[in-house]
Design a protein around this nucleic acid. Structure first.
Lengths: 210, 210
DNA sequence: GACGAATTAGACAAGACTGTCTAATTTTGT
DNA sequence: ACAAAATTAGACAGTCTTGTCTAATTCGTC
């Protein structure tokens, strides 16, 4: 395991103050001196960890965005799939859990560092997701007035049933993720989905059975 | 400030490992020895803090539940008001912020303590809120199939726009809370509200003006 | 005012951690 | 194979923290 990975793990478990450099060195399989060679001190190491996690999470998020159903076949199923992927690849995975915890626990102590995270993370990802929903609405698949609000509500709904688990730092099971996403997307579509005419439904049923 | 209050404040700011008993004593305006007299050691003090916060938060939550619009006059406005009160009195206030942070930062370290919190907190409040929505649906004001899901989604929607602020431990402004609640309740009602007939709307308008 | 209980300041031992230093060893590039 | 660079183990000083102890002081109650 790399120094940064080991440090992320220990900082998350023990908090900044409780993290022990010797322990990080042990978990990373290097000597303490090597850590001090690469990163001047504990604080610099911590900042490197947050930067690394932010970058990796962003990469994961944008990769997942690429699978957004811009041209949905089955809107509900496609959005549920997207919500599940979002959860599994960006929110419930190691990097996501670690970054969330570090921001929650140490965010107030490092204002400028987390201002950077805010700009690079949510500041870039929310508009990108909102743009997807705007396109979906423009293509006539959704009745959305404010895409920014819709994007936030989409994820809030998809995660609605996972909050308690997230609180304690746990990882929801695949089933829980699927359940929450399914319920969330259904509610989302009850609010923003376009009622299809009876004719359209019949036509689709015919196409599906053919 | 009482010992427990000062301890809550310091534990939140610094984390368990980083919290300094001398600092807690100073902020509480007592000597360190007095703290050791009342609470055997740092860990016992920490547990007392979590228990106290859980109790106070629960009290606030149930007090706020009492203002749930069981017989709504204006469903949207009433639910927005409830969502705002929930946020201001239970989630954004001192106790709510502190308890959330302590659970997020130290939850994994004290499994049995936080199992207790889970039972006493979410385990009691979620069913209570779900029962309110079930009654509202039964009275014909909502079209809800699963009240538990609806309750979770209601709060998730009401807080959808406050997540980033919560992450960093900040307190959203009154305006932000109102905005988020308004958007959230509107979406909630688009999903679960019953379309009123034109006649019903006219009748209600007449009653209101009378 | 007097007596018992609670509180205080301060010293203290024991332990933990950070960050530095050194000298030896290993790895890397050529 | 050799030289430069990186890594290692271990010791070390300095600082901080917890939890205990003691003796003096204050507080509450009668």
């Amino acid at each position: 395991m790399s120094i940064i990975d080991a440090a992320a793990s220990v900082f998350c478990r023990e908090g900044f103050a409780g993290a022990n450099i010797d322990l990080i060195a042990m978990e990373a399989g290097v000597s303490r001196q090597t850590i001090y060679n690469h990163h001047r001190d504990k604080e610099k190491l911590f900042m490197a960890v947050v930067r690394d996690l932010t970058e990796r999470c962003n990469a994961g998020i944008f990769a997942t965005f690429a699978s957004f159903p811009d041209q949905p076949r089955e809107l509900e199923a496609d959005l549920i799939g997207f919500a599940v992927r979002m959860n599994q690849n960006c929110i419930c995975n190691r990097d996501g859990r670690f970054l969330r915890k570090l921001i929650q626990t140490e965010g107030e102590r490092y204002p400028e560092l987390f201002a950077e995270w805010r700009d690079q993370g949510p500041g870039r990802t929310w508009p990108a997701l909102a743009a997807r929903f705007a396109r979906l609405a423009h293509a006539g698949h959704l009745a959305v007035d404010d895409p920014d609000v819709a994007a936030r509500q989409f994820l809030a709904l998809a995660n609605a049933e996972l909050q308690t688990t997230f609180m304690l730092g746990g990882t929801p099971s695949e089933d829980e993720v699927l359940q929450s996403a399914t319920h969330g997307v259904r509610t989302f579509l009850r609010a923003f989905g376009k009622r299809r005419s009876a004719a359209a439904v019949e036509k689709q049923a015919l196409l599906a059975s053919a």
